[in-house]
Design a protein around this nucleic acid. Structure first.
Lengths: 338, 338
DNA sequence: CACGAGGCTGCACTCGTTTGCAGTACCTTT
DNA sequence: AAAGGTACTGCAAACGAGTGCAGCCTCGTG
């Protein structure tokens, strides 16, 4: 026979199913005789009874699942975030349902529909599009959600973001400490909020540290990609700019810089230092290993899950947002200027 | 008000809930008058009706979910597999529930318990332990499952595995074609089935290609790790063996070889060629980019999902197992012998 | 000793959907 | 015109657990 039901337990313990239900539920256990409760629990244990969450969900309108909306699990950015989320969800008795949107708005919409029809109790959204009417609508409909890696615009939704500005300052300060004075920035696309924030933070850090604040030392990559990063650095180089260090908008852009080094016979870190952003896996395997700003992905995920659970428990609570501190991982791509 | 229920639709369409149910379900639609069916469907559409899978699951004892048991999502091996699985599951109306075991048998057990109590209809297991009493028990209890990356021992369960032997032969043949005759192998731990299979395949390939079959050209790494790989190569080198190319048990071991090259001033590929195994992400970013055998991770996941869906649809069907062909990705770490 | 008050427990209904069975109406056939 | 079929449709009972309500028993109190 298959898994025992509540009735089986009740029968075996010689009580009514209702009593068994109350005995097994810590919240209602006080309503039943302590001795009876113990007996029921023991029988349940012996029979290996597991409450059927589907049946429970039907009655309580709670599914015990939450939806994780991400662009693509294959992007190494997300697995640690997901892991962090699951680690919090699991002890709380929740499970995560992952959907990939591939950054396609239609897919995103239909995937979220799927999640909603599966009765998820909340959403953790990690997709990156800036303006987002769908999310506004969901929020209006009372769907509980939390955003990750991006501060929502207009919508009153809690969010978890890395403190980009502080991270950039960490990078610049590290280079300044090494003795660099002319530092360049290959920024990410200025159509993304991260790209803008980091570029702005770069200039701010340069100024507060009293370094040379030359707008010509900033190039912009068209995409968050290796190729675009390489192009960005080439522009700087072909422009005849002089600099001894580069702060890249993210790790992929830094990898693009590596390609240009190779192509033009520049040695790193002797002639040019680079620091990346994100701390993707395997960066320590590069030659030279890349110095980068590490984002606490797992912690971000965990924090997001905690926020969501709070919001589910008490939807009225004021939305709060968290900005997590970053750290610098110093490896071999940065050194004193030659 | 919240999402409309089947009864709401039925009422709005002027029929009984049972009729609405039949009209909405393609399988039973033939039982109801075509005109009525159309009306019901139109009303459902207008009201934005979404069947509640929880209620449906309660009645049909099908949850529409399947469990994905993996050691750690953070390991870059798994995201593509998971992605491949989800891509098949989704159009079939299923969702995957991911759990991480961290290779801890206790955790594995409790996680699988969790999945079962959530009424998953099947399991895709990608954990690596060799002997596995838990899985045998589950199989005996009639739990439908599929194994990934590992052929089950003793248990009669379908599995999807990469064709390791063919992959190794690809690597050896590539090196032979380049002109190498004395090829070494830094094997993975011989306590793992993959380690054994690949080492055996290596010797077999050497012989079929008529190369020098010298047992002293094989060293064994104690773990699937960079350090262990480095140690393996050092043994070979210190032994005074002569060879011009290395087939590494996997990419991490190959990375270990890179470390030794660096440490002893050996240039790759001029003095020594290397080929890895797995095609981890970012291998193309190394200097030199690593030639390696690529495993079709996503396809493996997809195939596993297909097999599982088949098994769910028809549990009686004979278990079949699939071995997927691999391909060689030629990059910069292999060249003609100097 | 009678009565009221708790403390427990059981009854029965509910959640939203599916499905066997019974019924109705209409059509065909003899 | 009656009998039998067919094509629908409705009724009601599930699935497994949660919960308001009523009833029972027991104990304490006046």
């Amino acid at each position: 026979m298959s898994t025992p039901t509540l009735r089986d337990v009740a029968e075996a313990a010689g009580v009514h199913a209702a009593t068994a239900s109350r005995a097994l539920n810590p919240a209602t256990r006080g309503l039943v005789n302590a001795k009876t409760a113990r007996r029921v629990m023991k029988v349940a244990e012996q029979l290996g009874y597991r409450p059927n969450p589907i049946a429970r969900g039907l009655k309580t309108a709670k599914s015990g699942t939450i939806g994780l909306v991400i662009p693509d699990l294959t992007n190494p950015l997300f697995p640690p975030i997901v892991r962090g989320i699951e680690d919090i969800l699991e002890p709380a008795g929740y499970s995560g349902l992952i959907v990939n949107t591939d950054n396609d708005p239609h897919r995103e919409q239909s995937q979220i529909e799927r999640l909603r029809s599966r009765q998820v109790e909340g959403l953790i959204v990690a997709t990156a599009r800036v303006h987002h009417p769908l999310l506004e609508r969901l929020h209006d409909e009372g769907v509980v959600m939390v955003m990750v890696n991006r501060r929502p615009e207009g919508v009153d939704v809690p969010s978890i973001t890395p403190d980009d500005a502080a991270g950039i300052e960490l990078a610049v300060r590290h280079l300044a400490d090494l003795g660099h004075t002319r530092i360049a920035h290959v920024a990410g696309p200025q159509s993304t909020s991260t790209g803008v924030t980091r570029a702005r933070a770069f200039r701010a850090a340069i100024r507060t540290l009293g370094l040379e604040d030359d707008p010509r030392l900033t190039a912009t990559a068209a995409y968050w990609s290796e190729d675009a990063g390489a192009d960005g650095l080439r522009v700087l180089l072909d422009d005849g700019q002089e600099f001894t260090a580069i702060v890249a908008g993210n790790d992929l852009i830094a990898l693009g810089c590596y390609d240009v080094f190779h192509e033009r016979g520049i040695t790193c870190p002797d002639e040019l230092s680079v620091v990346g952003f994100n701390d993707m896996p395997f960066l320590d395997k590069l030659r030279p290993p890349l110095t980068t700003v590490a984002i606490p992905h797992q912690q971000i995920g965990a924090e997001a899950a905690r926020l969501l659970l709070d919001a589910i428990a008490d939807p009225a609570r004021a939305t709060r947002s968290v900005s997590l501190p970053l750290s610098l991982v110093v490896r071999g791509s940065t050194a004193r200027p030659g």
